[in-house]
Write a protein that binds this DNA or RNA. Sequence first.
DNA 1: AATAATCTTGACATCAAAGTCAGGTTTACC
DNA 2: GGTAAACCTGACTTTGATGTCAAGATTATT
Lengths: 169, 169
Amino acid sequence: MKITALEEYGLRCLVQLARHHSEDRPVAISEIAKAEGLSIQYVGKIMHELRRAGLINSLRGIHGGFVLAKAPQEISIADIFETMGGETPEHVCSKFSGNQTQCVHLGGCSIRSVWSFVMGQVSSVLKRISLADLIASESSCSSKLNEQHTQFETNKLPVYPAATEGAAK
Amino acid sequence: MKITALEEYGLRCLVQLARHHSEDRPVAISEIAKAEGLSIQYVGKIMHELRRAGLINSLRGIHGGFVLAKAPQEISIADIFETMGGETPEHVCSKFSGNQTQCVHLGGCSIRSVWSFVMGQVSSVLKRISLADLIASESSCSSKLNEQHTQFETNKLPVYPAATEGAAK
DNA sequence: AATAATCTTGACATCAAAGTCAGGTTTACC
DNA sequence: GGTAAACCTGACTTTGATGTCAAGATTATT
């Protein structure tokens, strides 16, 4: 399973907007491109996608730029992934149909069940993490709470709600 | 997040081998290709990858073919995914470094923590599902236990151990 | 030993994702 | 109203994943 470029960069561009969300001014493509080490043209394309999906609003003209369409608490990573080309288990089946027009296993496929389950797990984790969470963990990580650092290293994210609940329910 | 062709087809080819694992004969590429609706050449390439990784053994010559290198209970989907191009969070960071040689966020990146966490979740789910589990759920689904069918539809996999434990522990 | 069925291997072709380019439109400021 | 800073859009190029081709090596059967 691979994370796509649009997912990764889309998220990173949105984090940039979220950081400046309290200030009352739009953020320009050139700023984001510089902060993320991306070309201006490419960031332009990414922001266009995010705008089409309604996650951000744009302001044209000089002093223009982009702002989040909702508060950082209300935008989850799952929202972003869906926007930037998210797939359902059905997509997987139609994508991997080999040299047939339909997958040969359409009647009773145990693999499809696994994909459904795994994707559901991923989605339930990503739904619980908002842009606000990401920014909060940045500051707590780099400044004050350094005893949490070891936990980060061992792949636990103490800041986010336990991913376990969603799976158990 | 996308499932790659090698992951999907690699798993499906291994399921074919697992089905014939009790019989004591190798399975030929041509059989697998027919069963999965893939070209013979492509299956050849996939099997070659799986053999290089040590998941299967090959027998050349007439009456040749492939057999699992281990029992179906001992091969997990996680094993297959790692073989067919699995990625670590570090891979993601080096892949998405934009126009720099290194990612601009290497010091204290909250997104990397998220990828670590999500990938850990996925991995813990996939480690718990073996080829034997997949075959068992096939037969129970298509023949006897049809009351489980509704549960499958709602993305629950009653046959597999709860994915929850790994996350909680 | 000849043959046919099989795996092995590396080069090649195709396609979709990733990323760039160029020309256009909008808006604030002077 | 001219100009510069910004977004908008579609066409283009590049790159890596996907899938095919063709020639070779191995082995059971006759």
